[in-house]
Nucleic acid binder design. Structure first.
Length: 572
DNA sequence: CTCTACCATTTGCGACTCAC
DNA sequence: GTGAGTCGCAAATGGTAGAG
C-alpha cells in the first residue's frame, strides 16, 4: 500500500492553487513506482509554484484516508521540505531535477517502502507494520526535523500484547516483506534508510517489537477516537494546523429499528442453541430462530444477546464449564503474553465438547424454563423497578461488579447459587474437583499440554502404581496424576476464574472502557520503565547516529524483553 | 444514569485462483 | 505442490442510542 501523488488536471491552467486536487493512490506493484515517481515530479512543479500544501492535502481524499497519522505527517513533512528546498535554493524543478531528486528522496522512499503490502485484507496488521517501519526510519535516520520524542512509542505508548494469532500473522507478513526487500539491490536498500534494521534485525529485536507494538485494536482506537489526549498531540506537533488526527464522529446514518425485548422463550432457545452450536450464530438462527415466530431476530441479534456477559457466564456456569472457559480465553487473549498454549487449550475445549459433555446436560433439549430461571437467578438482580413481570431481565451487576469487584458478594452469591442447585449433586462434586484443579493447575501451568493427556490418562494409573512402588519420590509422576481430569477438569477449573473475569468485565461498554484504561495504565505501570528508557534513551542514543547501522537500541529493550519472552517460551 | 438492543466496522478463516 | 493474493461470509469487537 503505497501512496503517491498525482495531479488531477483542472480544465484550464486557471488552477487556483487553493482548490487544486491531489490524490493519493495505491501502488499495486513495483512497476507502478516509476509511474508514481513521475507524478511526484509533477508535484514538484506545483510545489515550486508555491502551492499551499495544506490546502492541497486537506482536500486530498487519499491523504485523508491515509490510515495512520504518522504517514500523514511523513507526507506532509516531505512535501514541506521539498518546497522549502525549492524555494531556498531557487531550484527550477525542470532544470535541476538531480538535486531535487536527492532532496525528495524521503518522499519516494516512503512510497517505496509501502509498496510491498497487499491492499485488501488484514489491513490493521499491515498498518502496524507500516507504523513500525516509519518509526524505524524516523528513529534510525536521525531526522532532525522531528522532536526528540517523536516516535511511535511516544505516540502510542500503550502496551498491549497482540494475540498469538495476530502475532503469528504479523510475523508472516514481516518475513514476507523482508524477503521482498532482500531481493532488492543493496543500493536500493541503502536508500531506504533504517530499513536495513528491519532486514537485519535479530530475532530478539523482532520479539521485542511484536511484544510492544500496539495491537491493531489500539491503533484503530487511535484512529477512530481521540483516545490520546489532544494535548499530547499538540505538544508533539505544536505547529500542526492541518493534520486532523481526530476522526469526526458521524451520527448514525440509518434509522434504528424498534427495540424488541427478548422473551424468555427466545432466551431459552438461545440457550439451547448455544449449548448445541456454541457460537455458531448462523446455525443457531437457522435451527431455532428462522421460523416466522422469531423472524425478528437475526444471527447478529443472537450474538449480541449472548454477548451479554451475564447471559454467557451464567449459561456457561450452569450448563458446562467449557463454555465459560472459552469466554475467559477470549478475554485474556490480549494480555496473554505467551499464547503458546492457546491452541492446545482450544483443542481441549473442542475435545471437551465432542467427547464427554462436561456440562450437566447431554442434550440441549434438556433445557427448560426452570433452567432458564436458574440461569437468570444466577446473576444477582439489581433491585429494579418492580415492573419486571415477565422478563426479569437479569439486571447486569456490571455496574457494581465492574466498579467495585465485590468478591465477597460474589462469593456469597455463589454460595446461594450452590444452595439452589444442590439438588444436582454432581455439580458439587465437580466443583470440588475444580477447586482441586485450581490448586493443582497453578503448579502445573507450565506443562499443561493437551497432547500429553491422552497418553498419560490411559497409562497413568498403571504408571502411578508402578511409580509408587518404585520411587515414591517421582514427583513428576505424582503431578501427572493431576492431568488425570484433564480436559474437562482443566476447563472447569477455569470456570471460577471465568466467573470473576466475566463479572468484572461484563457490559460491553464498560469492558471496552476498562480496556482502554488498561492500555494507558499499563503504560504507566510496567511499561513505564521500559518505554521511558526506550524513548528517552534509545532514540537519542540512536538518533544521534545518523548511520543506518542496525540499532544498538535492541540491547536495552531486549534486556527487558528477553526475560519475559523467555519466561513464556519456557514451557518447552 | 444505567442497561441493553441495535448498528458499524474489523477480524478470522476457508476457499479459490494463479504463477512458479 | 506451494505460496501469495483475493474474496465471501461469519464472528468478534467497538460504539450508539432508546427506554426506563
Amino acid at each position: 500500500m503505497a501512496k503517491s501523488f498525482s495531479r488531477i488536471e483542472d480544465d484550464d491552467d486557471d488552477i487556483e492553487d487553493e482548490t487544486m486536487n491531489v490524490t493519493l493512490d495505491l501502488i499495486k506493484n513495483r512497476d507502478d513506482i516509476e509511474k508514481q515517481r513521475e507524478t511526484i515530479w509533477a508535484l514538484h512543479l506545483l510545489l515550486a509554484d508555491g502551492i499551499n500544501i495544506h490546502s492541497i492535502l486537506g482536500q486530498s481524499k487519499g491523504y485523508q484516508q491515509t490510515q495512520h497519522f504518522t504517514q500523514q505527517f511523513t507526507i506532509l513533512k516531505s512535501l514541506n521540505n521539498i518546497q522549502v528546498f525549492i524555494k531556498e535554493f531557487e531550484i527550477d524543478p525542470e532544470l535541476d531535477d538531480q538535486r531535487l531528486e536527492e532532496f525528495s528522496k524521503g518522499l519516494r522512499d516512503y512510497v517505496f517502502l509501502l509498496c510491498y503490502f497487499g491492499k485488501k485484507r488484514d489491513t490493521s496488521h499491515r498498518r502496524v507494520l507500516e507504523a513500525w517501519i516509519i518509526e524505524m526510519r524516523l528513529r534510525y535516520k536521525s531526522d532532525e526535523a522531528l522532536e526528540e520524542n517523536t516516535t511511535i512509542d511516544s505516540l502510542m505508548s500503550g502496551k498491549l500484547i497482540p494475540s498469538k494469532r495476530v502475532r503469528t500473522y504479523f510475523k508472516t507478513l514481516y518475513n514476507r516483506t523482508k524477503k521482498n526487500w532482500q531481493i532488492q539491490s543493496q543500493e536500493e536498500m541503502e536508500k531506504l534508510g533504517g530499513v536495513d534494521f528491519i532486514v537485519n534485525s535479530l530475532q530478539d529485536e523482532w520479539d521485542y517489537f511484536i511484544s510492544v507494538i500496539p495491537p491493531p485494536s489500539l491503533i484503530l482506537a487511535y484512529r477512530q477516537r481521540a483516545l490520546m489526549p489532544k494535548t499530547s498531540f499538540d505538544r508533539i506537533y505544536p505547529n500542526n494546523k492541518m493534520i486532523n488526527f481526530y476522526k469526526k464522529i458521524e451520527p448514525r446514518s440509518t434509522i434504528q429499528k424498534p427495540r424488541v425485548k427478548w422473551t424468555p422463550e427466545e432466551e431459552l432457545l438461545l440457550m439451547r442453541g448455544m449449548f448445541k452450536y456454541d457460537t455458531q450464530w448462523a446455525k443457531i438462527y437457522e435451527v431455532y430462530f428462522s421460523s416466522t415466530e422469531f423472524s425478528g431476530r437475526t444471527p447478529v441479534n443472537l450474538k449480541d444477546k449472548a454477548r451479554s456477559a451475564e447471559f454467557k457466564a451464567n449459561y456457561a456456569e450452569f450448563s458446562g464449564s467449557h463454555r465459560k472457559k472459552k469466554v475467559v480465553e477470549s478475554e485474556d487473549d490480549d494480555f496473554d503474553l505467551d499464547g503458546e498454549d492457546e491452541d492446545d487449550e482450544e483443542e481441549e475445549f473442542h475435545s471437551a465438547t465432542e467427547n464427554g459433555q462436561t456440562g450437566k446436560y447431554t442434550d440441549e433439549s434438556e433445557f427448560d424454563y426452570s433452567d432458564l430461571e436458574k440461569v437468570r437467578r444466577k446473576s444477582p438482580k439489581k433491585t429494579t423497578t418492580t415492573n419486571n413481570n415477565n422478563n426479569n431481565k437479569k439486571q447486569s451487576p456490571s455496574k457494581s461488579t465492574t466498579k467495585e469487584k465485590e468478591k465477597d458478594k460474589q462469593g456469597k452469591k455463589r454460595k446461594e447459587q450452590e444452595d439452589d442447585y444442590e439438588e444436582e449433586e454432581e455439580e458439587e462434586m465437580e466443583e470440588e474437583e475444580e477447586q482441586e484443579e485450581e490448586e493443582e493447575e497453578e503448579e502445573e501451568q507450565d506443562d499443561e499440554y493437551s497432547s500429553d493427556y491422552s497418553y498419560e490418562e490411559e497409562e497413568e494409573e498403571e504408571d502411578k502404581e508402578k511409580a509408587k512402588k518404585k520411587k515414591g519420590v517421582m514427583a513428576p509422576l505424582k503431578k501427572k496424576s493431576v492431568p488425570k481430569k484433564p480436559v474437562s477438569k482443566k476447563l472447569g477449573a477455569k470456570k471460577s476464574a471465568a466467573s470473576t473475569t466475566n463479572a468484572s468485565s461484563t457490559t460491553p461498554s464498560s469492558s471496552s472502557r476498562k480496556r482502554d484504561e488498561y492500555i494507558y495504565n499499563s503504560d504507566s505501570e510496567d511499561e513505564q520503565d521500559e518505554p521511558s528508557t526506550t524513548r528517552k534513551k534509545p532514540s537519542p542514543g540512536v538518533a544521534k547516529k545518523p548511520s543506518s547501522a542496525p540499532p544498538p537500541k535492541a540491547a536495552p529493550q531486549k534486556a527487558h524483553k528477553a526475560p519475559a519472552s523467555v519466561k513464556k517460551s519456557k514451557p518447552n
